[in-house]
Simulated assay, not measured.
Amino acid sequence: MRKILESTFVSLDGVISNPQDYSPTYWDDEHFGYSASLMEGADAQLLGRVTYEGFADAWSQRTGEMADHFNNMKKYVASRTLTETTWNAELLQGDAVEAVRRLKESEGGNLIKFGTGEFSKALLDAKLVDEYHFWIFPVIAGSGDRLFDGLPMTHLDLLGTTTFKSGIVVHKLAPKA
């Protein structure tokens, strides 16, 4: 069975929206190394529509070893509004949670989920995510969408932490059994 790993950028005050406004300042070799290690065992990405559109716009313009790997990796997109995709992606058909459940049960490497929003909340509620990698940036965003607003209390086990010189701390967590 495949594992689902979620990788999410979050500010100190829990804001998940618009990480492109603050995160590039902190990107360095440690950041890219951790990102690359997350993708090593993955052979596909799970994306919501907003993340898919933003990534397709940004990543399709990039070149280099990491960009080539990222661009060539299969992508599965959850959307109620898109009717077609490009950038090596296909739309999840029918109920997105059930489609992900079938993907998880299929043969292959890990599925890496980027971005956080309605799709992530649905996967958390269905208990489909195996690991969370919350990248906590040393910044206070002040306003924006909060991490998992509206969900019931959910306990997680800390699997480890990674601290970067830039001040980013990644918490690796798994749902309690």
Rank of each mutant, 00 (worst) to 15 (best):
Leu82Gln: 08
Pro24His: 10
Arg80Tyr: 07
Glu84Lys: 14
Ser23His: 11
Gly54Met: 13
Tyr34His: 10
Glu30Lys: 01
Tyr34Ile: 03
Thr63Gly: 15
Tyr52Thr: 01
Gln61Arg: 13
Ile16Cys: 11
Asn88Leu: 04
Gly54Arg: 04
Glu65Ile: 03
Ala42Arg: 00
Asp68Glu: 14
Ser11Glu: 11
Gln45Phe: 14
Trp27Ser: 14
Phe32Arg: 10
Asn71Cys: 14
Gln45Asn: 06
Met66His: 15
Pro19Cys: 10
Thr86Gly: 04
Gly14Ala: 11
Asn71Gln: 13
Thr81Arg: 11
Gly33Leu: 00
Ala89Tyr: 00
Gly48Met: 04
Thr86Met: 05
Tyr22Val: 11
Gln45Ala: 10
His69Trp: 03
Ser37Ala: 08
Ser11Thr: 15
Pro19Ser: 06
Ser60Gly: 13
Leu12Gln: 13
Arg49Glu: 12
Leu38Val: 00
Gly41Asn: 11
Tyr52Cys: 02
His31Cys: 02
Thr85Gln: 07
Glu65Lys: 15
Arg49Trp: 04
Asp57Trp: 06
Val15Ser: 08
Thr8Glu: 09
Met66Pro: 14
Leu46Phe: 01
Tyr76Arg: 01
Lys75Asp: 04
Met73Asn: 05
Val50His: 09
Leu91Tyr: 03
His31Val: 03
Arg62Gly: 01
Thr86Glu: 12
Arg62Thr: 06
Gly48Val: 06
Arg62Asn: 06
Ala42Phe: 00
Thr86Ala: 11
Thr86Arg: 14
Asp57Met: 15
Val15Ile: 15
Ser17Arg: 05
Ala67Asp: 03
Asp21Phe: 14
Gln61Lys: 15
Val15Arg: 08
Glu30Val: 01
Glu84Asp: 13
Thr63Ile: 09
Arg80Ser: 15
